[in-house]
Design a protein around this nucleic acid. Structure first.
Lengths: 338, 338
DNA sequence: TTGCGACGTCGTAAATGGTGACCATGCCAA
DNA sequence: TTGGCATGGTCACCATTTACGACGTCGCAA
């Protein structure tokens, strides 16, 4: 391994000068700086990140803690964070929790041990972010707010988005709407349910039938299947379903498919959708959520904190654009199940 | 920051003993170990990763360098790598290159500077992996082989998969097949074209019309649109198109959509597909590629290298399962464009 | 001309937190 | 007594940053 000592020797200066040339704080005479740079280039010197970080007790790594990168919603957000981080020389460590609190805790511990410069996390309601916060590691929450608003967060207006999407189902002609919503421990589940409820209220004039509301115990395709089956096997099944997130919607679609009840036979809202969705259609409504914007904004806010911003916790609520609110995968009745 | 010295003082032992309790190599007497653990717990001590890594010049970070995590093919692969890494206490740094060699070089430099324990990379043909290899950082290539087979790689059989998928288009009744293939600098483009060519040869008895083959200059949806337009505006346009990768296929679909030539009017193979694809249908064929398996296997191989394996470079070619070779998004003609 | 302070530059050495080779101690069995 | 082993302390080391001080030069005033 080639160190600053090797470079210093070749350039005929002290190691401190080499450090100064690369650190760039204190001034170095032109000639010496040039000699150092030439020597470094010749030796293909790369400063050792561990030594540098140990000495300065700083870091240029951001931990991105999400339930699952394979969920396109979080994939895009992660990509946006990485773009913003790279632009200022930071790297991103990827952490998948599957919404398990223990995994999340492990990652938070890792983040302080590593240590990282900051954390972007989609927490759930049982998260204990205090571990990181007490250790003065900046934290920004995305998609969901921090349990007690103890740190910055970037979310969008779930209530309004759910309200709007549900109205679209009514606009498409459906009348008896069911809802499959995310688990209790995910903060966004409630406002989405409330948005749906409000729309039902506005359109039917009465409270929704409780039999038409199913809350998931976890976020998975299997759970989506289970709840869709429950909904459809009721005595008065719905003619359209609002599904509170991506994986649940995929599971629900699978059930509709098997039962040959595909949209537009039964309407479906998938709240948050894969970027591969290309087409509008009244049958499946895939809402367009501001994942990228959340990621970019969260990264910017985190970098501000890393650079010493000490404002009290900020909470950003992004609007959901309703002019292109939906895109849809369109599936004809009767196609074969894979 | 609480250090081993603090713990040592509280536990009444030397710092070395604290280190040993956590390192776990040399034995420590029960009583002392207990005291150390209690002190550490009370102080909420976390060993400083930078100091540890500096001293041992080891690392527990893997760099995952892919063109774009937002491409579902690489998303799933990345998730698989993270799962395998986490299982043995490693973390994954995420790097998106957009297939730009400069970005890739930056990341490779970062990987040696950081330094990371190993690299998993989807290289392109201009990649200079030697930078890492010369510095003895283990590298495993995924999806594509290393330019000169200088390191381990995990790929799948692109020729056979393309051959099989193309046959499926003929089986579905299409007769004049076009091809949109990935850029020259991506190693998989050629075997996929060859598989397609071979299938055309087998089914028509003659070489394909060169006018029906379009090679992309980059991997993007816009490029897919451009080439699909070119193909369809020829004098004898194809009645089905084989598209060599995900983003190109999405672009091509968009064009078919605008022209109201959606499958099954015109057939389409999307080579590698979003996991959200649920349904089979002869119109759009989305091949099922072993992304997860590639990720898992690459992580395992990399960990072997990190643990000192010195076998010559190995190249794994995974089979593509042809019993469930295809899944499809199904899109009826005439739906609205988003 | 000389003296002196300011300034720009650069080297020395002391951290930074943890590891591990080496060594000292004490105990037990041969 | 001696040899071996389990245990645990000391200290050098990892690569870098940075406080501190030294050195040379220059300008300005005495």
């Amino acid at each position: 391994m080639v160190t600053i000592y090797d470079v210093a020797k070749m350039a005929g200066v002290s190691p401190a000068t080499v450090s100064r040339v690369f650190g760039g704080q204190t001034p170095v005479a032109q000639a010496k700086a040039q000699a150092v740079r030439e020597a470094a280039a010749k030796l293909e010197f790369q400063p050792n990140g561990n030594a540098r970080r140990l000495r300065t007790s700083s870091s240029d790594i951001i931990a991105m803690i999400v339930p699952d990168v394979a969920n396109p919603y979080f994939t895009e957000m992660t990509r946006a964070v990485e773009d913003a981080a790279r632009a200022v020389g930071y790297s991103v460590i990827l952490c998948n929790t599957d919404d398990e609190v223990d995994r999340e805790q492990d990652y938070l511990r890792m983040a302080t041990r590593e240590p990282v410069a900051g954390i972007i996390i989609a927490p759930n309601c049982q998260s204990r972010l205090s571990w990181a916060i007490e250790r003065r590691v900046p934290v920004v929450c995305v998609d969901r707010r921090a349990p007690h608003d103890t740190c910055d967060s970037v979310v969008f207006d779930n209530f309004s988005a759910a309200l709007g999407a549900t109205h679209m189902l009514y606009d498409a002609g459906y009348e008896r709407l069911g809802a499959i919503i995310g688990p209790e421990f995910v903060e966004t589940s409630l406002p989405r349910l409330q948005g749906w409820t409000q729309a039902v209220l506005e359109r039917t004039g009465s409270q929704p039938d409780p039999a038409l509301i199913k809350q998931a115990l976890q976020t998975s395709e299997a759970e989506g299947e289970r709840l869709a089956l429950e909904l459809l096997s009721g005595t008065e099944p719905p003619d359209a379903i609002f599904v509170g997130n991506n994986p649940l919607a995929t599971g629900a679609l699978r059930v509709l498919f098997r039962k040959e009840l595909l949209p537009p036979t039964i309407g479906l809202v998938s709240f948050g959708g894969p970027p591969q969705a290309l087409f509008t259609y009244p049958g499946i409504i895939v809402t367009h959520l501001p994942q990228r914007e959340i990621g970019t904004m969260a990264a910017d806010m985190l970098l501000e904190r890393i650079n010493g911003c000490t404002e009290p916790a900020r909470s950003i609520v992004l609007p959901v654009s309703m002019n292109t609110p939906c895109e849809a995968l369109v599936v004809p009745v009767g196609a074969q199940v894979a």
